[in-house]
Computed example of a mutant assay.
Amino acid sequence: MAARTAPRAPGTEDTRTRLLATALRLFSEHGVEGTSLQMIADELGVTKAAVYYHFRAKDEITEAVAEPLLDTLARITEEAAAHRRRGAQIEHLLNGFVDLVVGHRVLVAVFSSDPGVARAVEKTLHHAGNFKERMLAVLTGPDPDVATLVTANVTLAGIALAGGSPELAGVDDDALREHLLITARRMLGRPRPRH
Rank of each mutant, 00 (worst) to 15 (best):
G158V: 02
L125Q: 00
G158P: 04
R185F: 12
A6G: 05
V102P: 06
V46N: 07
P193I: 10
F55V: 04
A118S: 08
T124Y: 01
A137V: 00
D174R: 10
V65W: 02
G34S: 11
E13L: 14
M1F: 00
Q89P: 01
R4H: 06
E29D: 14
G87A: 11
V138E: 03
A64P: 02
T77N: 02
F131I: 00
L136V: 07
L156F: 02
T62R: 00
T155I: 03
E178A: 14
V150R: 10
T47V: 00
A162T: 12
H30D: 14
A81I: 03
G170A: 14
G164Y: 05
D172K: 03
T140Y: 07
P166M: 09
A74F: 04
L26N: 12
P191G: 10
F27T: 05
S36N: 08
T47G: 15
E67M: 03
K58L: 12
H127Q: 02
P142S: 12
T47P: 02
G31M: 09
I40D: 13
V146K: 09
D14G: 08
T151D: 11
T35I: 10
E122S: 07
L181P: 00
M39Q: 15
A9V: 03
I40V: 15
R56G: 15
L161G: 06
P68Y: 06
A81E: 15
D71R: 12
G96E: 11
L37W: 01
A50F: 01
A137Y: 00
N95A: 13
G164Q: 11
F131T: 04
T140K: 09
A184C: 03
A162R: 12
P193H: 09
G96S: 11
L107G: 08
K58E: 03
R177A: 01
L136I: 11
T22R: 11
T155H: 05
F131Y: 07
E178S: 08
V108P: 04
G96K: 08
S113A: 15
L26C: 09
K48W: 01
I40N: 10
V46K: 13
E133S: 07
R194E: 12
A88V: 00
L149N: 13
P142R: 13
P191D: 13
G11S: 08
R194T: 14
R56F: 01
A147P: 02
L125G: 04
T15R: 15
G141I: 03
R84G: 14
E122G: 03
L125H: 01
R75Y: 05
A157G: 06
S113T: 14
A147D: 13
E78A: 15
R56V: 01
D174V: 01
A184V: 02
D59S: 05
R192S: 12
E13Y: 10
P68A: 05
K58H: 02
L181H: 04
A147V: 13
T35Q: 12
L107E: 15
R186V: 09
R25Y: 09
L188S: 09
T17D: 12
P144M: 09
V171S: 01
E133N: 08
L93C: 06
R186Q: 14
R86C: 03
H195N: 07
